[in-house]
């Protein structure tokens, strides 16, 4: 009996170690293969953007252009793409500034200031998060039309100056700031605005960076909102909107190098921001994700 009970753990230990090695190898295999399916499409799109039209449809697809061709990028210039890029940047910057300002104010008020009706305001904002964006498509157009915001920068920017998501991000952050910080300032007779601007806001850097990233990303990549705001004035197109209509305008004769060049142009700024600030992306997502 004694020998048996000793030999069983030993045997299971050996198989367990073997199993662990197999598992590790298998994990790496799967993860790298999958990583390839995430990276390869982007590499191929970059390569294609530098190919000439005849080379693009050659078989099999190749990651290295035989001859670097700027044809795709040059054609984009004839389509006002620089202006669209500028518009996208402009809209994204203003939307980001708006969210920074209004979400930190609102988030702080909801987290820390006891004011009558704060609970109702909070629930109201929570409620708007339940409304799917697509449901607002037509109503938003109606309001924009009534305000004369159709085909204007104001129409692109103003409705996006604050989102419920930004408010929640900041509210959650401010709730984690120790109250003692504010108490000291309050005893010294500081007003809520002073406490907010001088004491609390300087501690909020990580949250503000996350907010900058998400607001900029949202505005830069947004397609549906510009689509309904800009109806005729091509001078006001943003990059995604311009690209989509470029594709539509080509009909059956798609010039892939230009389409891929445009896609890469749209992706590049986000990619740069992402690689610099990826820690904040990941933190922001998990932060907002859990509480949902």
């Amino acid at each position: 009996m004694a020998t048996m009970s000793e030999s069983i753990p030993q045997g299971s230990l050996r198989t367990r170690a073997g199993w662990a090695t197999v598992k590790t190898l298998l994990s790496y295999g799967v993860l790298f293969l999958l990583a390839l399916t995430f990276i390869y499409p982007f590499l191929l799109a970059i390569a294609t953007s530098f190919k000439s039209l005849p080379e693009i449809n050659q078989f099999p697809v190749s990651l290295i252009p035989k001859e670097i061709s700027l044809e795709g990028y040059q054609r984009l210039l004839t389509f006002n793409v620089p202006r669209w890029t500028l518009n996208s940047a402009l809209v994204a910057v203003f939307v980001t500034l708006g969210n920074l300002l209004f979400a930190s104010l609102g988030g702080y008020a909801l987290a820390r200031i006891r004011f009558p009706g704060s609970k109702a305001v909070f629930l109201g904002i929570l409620g708007t998060m339940m409304i799917p964006g697509i449901v607002l498509l037509i109503p938003m157009f109606i309001v924009l039309k009534m305000l004369g915001f159709v085909d204007t920068y104001a129409g692109l920017i103003v409705p996006k100056l604050i989102t419920a998501f930004s408010i929640f991000l900041m509210k959650q952050f401010f709730e984690s700031v120790p109250r003692e910080l504010e108490e000291a300032a309050r005893i010294d007779g500081a007003t809520p605005l002073q406490i907010f601007a001088r004491v609390v806001l300087p501690t909020a850097k990580p949250a503000l960076v996350a907010l900058i990233i998400f607001s900029f990303q949202g505005a830069w990549n947004d397609f549906m909102h510009p689509l309904i705001v800009i109806t005729v004035n091509q001078q006001l197109f943003t990059l995604p909107l311009g690209l989509a209509l470029l594709r539509g305008g080509m009909g059956q004769n798609l010039q892939w190098n230009s389409l891929m060049a445009g896609s890469m142009l749209t992706t590049l700024p986000m990619a740069i921001i992402f690689f610099i600030f990826q820690r904040y992306f990941i933190e922001g997502i998990s932060y907002s994700g859990i509480k949902g």
């Binding site: 990303q217 830069w220 990549n221 397609f223 990059l239 995604p240 909107l241 690209l243 989509a244 594709r247 389409l259 891929m260 445009g262 896609s263 890469m264 749209t266 992706t267 986000m270 990619a271 992402f274 992306f281």
Partner: peptide, 9 residues
């Protein structure tokens, strides 16, 4: 983090 239009194309 990539634009939906870019990925669709």
């Amino acid at each position: 983090i990539t634009s939906s239009v870019a990925i669709s194309l």
